[in-house]
Design a protein around this nucleic acid. Sequence first.
DNA 1: ATGGCATGTAACACATGA
Length: 259
Amino acid sequence: MRIATYNINGTNGRLETLLAWLDDTQSDIVCLQDLKAPQAKFPERQLKEAGYAYVWHGQSRWNGVAILSRGSEPVLTRRGLPRDPDPSQCRYIEAAVNGVLVGCLYVPNGNPAPGPKWDYKLEWLKQFTVHAKQLLALDVPVILAGDYNIIPAEHDVYNPDRWQDDALFLPQHVRKAYASLLKQGWCGATATIHTDKPVYPFWDYLRQARERSAGLRLDHLLLSHHLTARLKDAGVDRDMRGRSKASDHAPAWIDLARE
DNA sequence: ATGGCATGTAACACATGA
């Protein structure tokens, strides 16, 4: 069973690319972020024709999250975080899919730090961390997949020195937040498989970042222990980043053994 | 330190992103 997360950076502008990738990979569950489309403009018909069911939460221009499922109907469990610091921003959706509770998240970028956007990111991460703990307490298989906008460690960025003061990387705050999730018991799937070298799911549009392999690891799939035991493989579909009109993110995925 | 690129909306320039 393949589960993927993809910051698509505009779902309608990249619909053909998305449909071709779904057809190629036959992904079973897909978490999408940054739909950049209002609720009414989600491409329902095309995704249904491609064999997917879905839940989504759209917002005009920015943010927006969706969970796609092939062959089964996702059962929505929540939109937005409990005590969401700004419910007008669509950054979290959660559904039960085939016996797995799936949380799809899009953490605020937080730049510039310090400032109101930075404060918002920290508050969002705080409430998310509280919710993540509650999910673990349910003792059911859970995956929290999405664009965390966190570089977890020095080796997850091409040039750590350059990013020390960035809201994606500040150690006492965002890196600490990620570490505290792992401490709760979550397993970062990609790093578990790729222990020697990071696989980047993001390259900036600027300065030929992709050609220089100047990537960042921002998209993560965190597993509860029920799923860690089933983890077979993980990777990034980096070819997606090379296509014309690509998102600046590529899909990150895991393969789980069937129960 | 700046701006390089890209998105959707539509005030055809802007806010936002990473």
